[in-house]
Computed example of a mutant assay.
Amino acid sequence: MSQETDPVSEAIAGELRLMDPAVRTSQALTRPLLDPQFVEVGASGRRWTYEEILAALPELEGSTAHGPRYEPSDITGVLLAPGLVHLTYETTIAGSRARRSSLWRRQDPSTPWRMYYHQATPISPVIT
């Protein structure tokens, strides 16, 4: 399978795009990366819907070109079923770390991979 058609690689590329401040501040760039049924449970514990995250993303941490940026590490993924990829990784931003999990789905081969679910769990400074 080529890099362009590998579902895990495509999901990782989408995940990394969502960390880019230029994408985070543009609904036109963010919309195609999020499933209309998207839900997130953020590191704060807040539950976000598709419309809520689109409205808030430009103001959230990691959304300014000159501010702190997400630094992802150890991104791995697995194809759970046709059209469903699970990614796990860690991020650091402004000294705060979190473990993250995302589900990416593609309902039709003619549509792009989109983030369906995302969860972030803070990592205590004393836990490695």
Rank of each mutant, 00 (worst) to 15 (best):
R24H: 05
P125Y: 09
E61K: 04
V8N: 05
G67A: 02
T64C: 11
E59N: 12
M19Q: 04
Q3K: 09
P112S: 03
D74S: 06
E15L: 01
L16S: 00
G42V: 03
G77A: 02
Y117R: 06
P109V: 12
E51N: 14
L80C: 04
M115I: 07
S44W: 07
S2R: 12
R97W: 12
Q27H: 15
V23P: 08
G83K: 03
A120H: 06
S73Q: 06
D20K: 05
P36W: 12
A13I: 12
S63G: 06
G95S: 09
R100G: 01
E4T: 15
L33W: 14
L16C: 06
R100D: 01
L87P: 03
R69A: 07
E61Y: 07
A28C: 09
S124T: 14
L103W: 09
A94P: 00
L84A: 15
T25V: 13
A28L: 15
D74F: 04
T91R: 00
P72T: 02
S63A: 01
T49L: 08
P7I: 08
R105N: 08
G62C: 03
L18P: 02
Y89H: 09
T64I: 03
P82C: 00
R17Y: 11
A43K: 10
P36S: 12
G14W: 05
S63N: 02
F38E: 05
S124A: 13
R69F: 12
